[in-house]
Design a protein around this nucleic acid. Sequence first.
DNA 1: TGCTAAGCGAGACGGTACGTCCCGTCTTAAT
DNA 2: ATTAAGACGGGACGTACCGTCTCGCTTAGCA
Lengths: 223, 223, 223, 223
Amino acid sequence: MSDRTGTRSGGRPRDPQLDTAILEATLHLLDEAGYTELTLEEVARRAGTSRPAIYRRWAGRAPLVLSAIATRLDVPSPPDTGCTLCDLAESFNIFLAAYRTIRPDALNALYSECVRSPELQERYRRTVVEPSRTAVRRTLEHATARGDLREDADREQLLDFVASLVHYRVLFGRHLSDDDAERAIETLLRGAAVDYGALLEHSEALENGHLDDDGTHHVHIGG
Amino acid sequence: MSDRTGTRSGGRPRDPQLDTAILEATLHLLDEAGYTELTLEEVARRAGTSRPAIYRRWAGRAPLVLSAIATRLDVPSPPDTGCTLCDLAESFNIFLAAYRTIRPDALNALYSECVRSPELQERYRRTVVEPSRTAVRRTLEHATARGDLREDADREQLLDFVASLVHYRVLFGRHLSDDDAERAIETLLRGAAVDYGALLEHSEALENGHLDDDGTHHVHIGG
Amino acid sequence: MSDRTGTRSGGRPRDPQLDTAILEATLHLLDEAGYTELTLEEVARRAGTSRPAIYRRWAGRAPLVLSAIATRLDVPSPPDTGCTLCDLAESFNIFLAAYRTIRPDALNALYSECVRSPELQERYRRTVVEPSRTAVRRTLEHATARGDLREDADREQLLDFVASLVHYRVLFGRHLSDDDAERAIETLLRGAAVDYGALLEHSEALENGHLDDDGTHHVHIGG
Amino acid sequence: MSDRTGTRSGGRPRDPQLDTAILEATLHLLDEAGYTELTLEEVARRAGTSRPAIYRRWAGRAPLVLSAIATRLDVPSPPDTGCTLCDLAESFNIFLAAYRTIRPDALNALYSECVRSPELQERYRRTVVEPSRTAVRRTLEHATARGDLREDADREQLLDFVASLVHYRVLFGRHLSDDDAERAIETLLRGAAVDYGALLEHSEALENGHLDDDGTHHVHIGG
DNA sequence: TGCTAAGCGAGACGGTACGTCCCGTCTTAAT
DNA sequence: ATTAAGACGGGACGTACCGTCTCGCTTAGCA
């Protein structure tokens, strides 16, 4: 749970309830005050302990908050309905999910501090960024396998486009509507889809309840 | 130059050399230490003055650094060579320029602090973000006028795509190569261009020295 | 009224209402907050003016407060009832009077600051100390003339004894009772009176209403 | 050594060298600049530490200076030569001693600040005032036991007279000469001695080397 | 009576010192 | 041996007040 597990051979065992108390205090404080306003002093106070007890477990504020965040963010599962358009729309939501779970301003302030250390930056990426990318990457792979995306389309670039757009809009307070997402998908798929028109038709068919016999949402190209 | 200019009716006039000294000290310190490590104490020390003299001019660290940054960032002019592909490639550079002028980590830490106040956030946007967007927006308008972009293409969305991609890649330390930019442009233009193939051909022609008679770089659609 | 009268040749005349307002604000603040807590800032605020207006009239806090005090302390008149014991008892009250008019702690803090400049010290003496001494000195002279005190008694020493005792006891918060004063007088007069016993008898006679025919309170030595 | 010793159970022990450095810096600064000009900032600077380190030990300037003074003032021992006049003369010196050890203006400014708090005032009394009074009180008791002072003489009053006279004269810059002291003693003893003339004769005899057989300085009354 | 310049009012300046918060570390006692 | 927790030394904060400077206005005295 904590970063600094140490040798843990002999000696007095660490109080595991303190781990929990500290992490919970951290999360509450993060919600209330944000990252910059969060002081270890106050975390210790709320956890009913002292600052050294925190430092013994984490190297500082950033690693502590990363640990705390990790207990709350859950690993997203890749959308895979067979409808590429729907899956992509859902993918936007996956990227948005982190910002709905943790205050975006806190996330950004945290990353600003993480940037100063390669390890922290990597840890932030693994904890906050990658899970969403991994899930959406899987979704894109499915779409490609399904034949909806061109084989030669740069899927990492697509990931970057989606992830960055969501990040940018959230960061600057311009919330991304479903419609925004839809139109963004259109732009991207025009460049990446084998047949964008077909994807669109299939999606509309779904909305109208015209499902395939087998109940899946495959897009029938050249059908 | 400073934020707190106030009424400035009566009273002893402000020493303008101090303004300069403070701003310069701020920029140097920003380059050396980044935003989080920048303290008003040290700024005052280097500027040969005292903290209150700074507080009299700026409300705090964030506004001070914004002012300092503003003296260094220059307003970009919109690329307009007639070659849409070239212009767009150049547009990526415009968005990158700010990060080359000011340490990206400093910019992000600064924005993290600005987020806490609507005014500061707005000020950051005006100072750091908008100039690039404005320039590139103009470029897109030219391209549209030229008939290279579809009339109904969402130009603000294009701006968001480009700006966010650059921001995201820089933020996470994955520097954007020229090739990356080129391929991103391809993806975006597939969705937004009237005739992407024609744009590509024109661009290649230019590289090979095949200029039009009139020396401009018009794209001849359907030519 | 103010210290710095200046050349006063041409130019805009000084607003005399400001003098008054400043002095009154000073006295009020002195009563409320004492000397150390009294700031020119606050005086100016209460007087509805600015600090420079004060500095134009007085060289600083100490001279200002001295001026303010001077408007309140009135010159005591020397006790002269003919009864030396009574007059001396009254003399103690004269020395006490200043401390009843102005907070003793304020007076002492003021003097502590005055000590740093010979002129201020002198001014303090003239304003606060000397008036009482002058009055009591007169009283002692009358007693001597009356034949109650020895010609060769050191009257300045007596003044010092009385003044210092009062100052010391007030300073250290041990208020001097009438009885204390009476017994102090006894001690001093044992050393300074021509015939202490006679003075005592006379005083007691007065209390019992045995006045001389002429209504004065002469002491009849050798009577 | 410092005021805020607290429980001192657990926790990192205080650096005792800092205590010393701070106190020494305080004394030096007190000698150089006086009390009002003494700033904790400068004390910290000279002691090579920071202001918080001082505040951790003392509640402010006054308690700090009181502690510093206490390290320099040594407890006077009561004069007891057998010659009451000599002892009293020496008693004046005891009261003067504090003012010779610490700048009188500093002492007074310090007391002016102490007055604002009962605890500080008490502490000042205990540190600066009482030691001298205690010593001289003892001397007076010896004189009484010896039969030189009247049993019913108010010895506390005598203490007040001597202490206050010294304080007053020093305060107002009128240094007390030996002769002044002698004549003051005369006045006081006229009121308090059993036989002032005999005390005087005894004292003069001592000056001329006429000691008693047993080498003590008894006063022979009625001899 | 109109002009000039001295002096006034007030605002704001540059700067010192304040008392506090929080950091990251050290130390003792307990487990 | 290692914990829990108190306290330490210190950097930086934002503020109050100081004493001074500058401005624009008022007014006396001269033309």
